[in-house]
Nucleic acid binder design. Structure first.
Lengths: 196, 196
DNA sequence: AAATAACACTAACAATCGTTAGGGCAAAAG
DNA sequence: CTTTTGCCCTAACGATTGTTAGTGTTATTT
């Protein structure tokens, strides 16, 4: 068939992961086969194994690449000296942006992490739990400061994250508003729902 | 192994569907096998086929049972003569309640419908699109009435539905607030985010 | 009690799955 | 140019998948 074509300085493994994210998003991790992936990449299924160890490796590369990006952002954000409500807005915008511009991998990380194999599964779940707790802490701080209405912070976090994952529908819709408009609308509703 | 036990006036097929919803929720439709399902039901895999036609039938029974319930509710709601904002709140509460009390089937319908086979897939997608449009129309009415702030109605719908599907996290969490508290918190944030 | 229908079993099927082995060719290094 | 390395191929493996055929057993009806 010919070699896997790489752009710039991306490795062949990177190319495979990128295509895998698209495929996993479309069909789901379990339903996507290595033969389909090979087709998309332009190679025979067996050839993929010159670059990767297993199908599962693809999934955890995707999941942890996303998780690391978000953890890093949160780290920075916590150190900033702005109001709690601004921190929330800032983080929401980051998530919305991620969902708009790195759609496939974020989507896969969100929806298919259950299929991770141990020890990655436990690791991922722990990171996820911790991330949400830290976000909840920001909201609780905002409640204490009377910037945010008195609500259950855990529930607020749940709403925020899942609302954002709904950008999936925006991607699928034919006639869609621009990414920027989407972002402003989401912020208006979500941040508006938190304000006193 | 012995016969499938049925409660009350539920058919054996109903029992299978019920167990299938639980299994599909836990492992995903593709990852769940008929042999696993048979185990849960307490029977050999082949015996399931005395009651159902295929694995796919199970999925579309689940999906359309949920879809029909929501369509019926919307029908009634549209006829009610209350304010737009109240209609929105009413529908949100219905969805929250569904997610709390009929968790497995609603979750499966929400997340696994992609695996429906034709013509059920197209049918389901059409119903879904139509449902969302009708919900968006209610919101747009509310905007015209100046009950609801000026936002993109489609985006609002997207946020609402996906926020509600986040109740999945609530089910998984160890120390959770009550269903009623959850509902009130969600309404506070979501309806609060719409109000002018 | 006899006949019928409903249901569960064992065994097996064809298809598809992820993955490995081993060989050949092209690019890179010497 | 020669050697080595990287990459892709074909072929095949063992496991698992959904499902069917055929037979026996239990419950229901006559």
């Amino acid at each position: 068939m010919g070699r896997i074509k790489t752009d710039n300085n991306a490795s062949r493994k990177d190319v495979i992961i990128e295509k895998a994210a698209i495929l996993f998003k479309e069909k789901g991790f379990k339903a996507a086969s290595m033969r389909e992936l090979a087709d998309v990449v332009g190679v025979e299924a067996a050839s993929l194994y010159n670059h990767i160890k297993s199908k599962n490796e693809l999934l955890h590369e995707i999941c942890f690449s996303v998780a690391n990006r978000y953890n890093q952002k949160l780290e920075l954000l916590e150190a900033e000296s702005v109001s709690s409500l601004q921190k929330v807005e800032n983080l929401l915008r980051f998530h919305i942006d991620g969902m708009v511009h790195h759609f496939e991998e974020v989507f896969v990380s969100d929806r298919e992490w259950k299929h991770l194999s141990e020890p990655y599964l436990s690791n991922f779940q722990n990171q996820r739990r911790s991330y949400r707790k830290r976000f909840a802490a920001i909201i609780e701080e905002g409640i204490k400061n009377k910037e945010i209405k008195k609500i259950d912070a855990t529930t607020a976090v749940l709403i925020m994250f899942h609302a954002i994952s709904g950008i999936e529908s925006w991607h699928r819709s034919k006639q869609k508003i621009s990414g920027k408009e989407l972002e402003e609308n989401m912020i208006a509703i979500l941040v508006g729902g938190l304000k006193k």
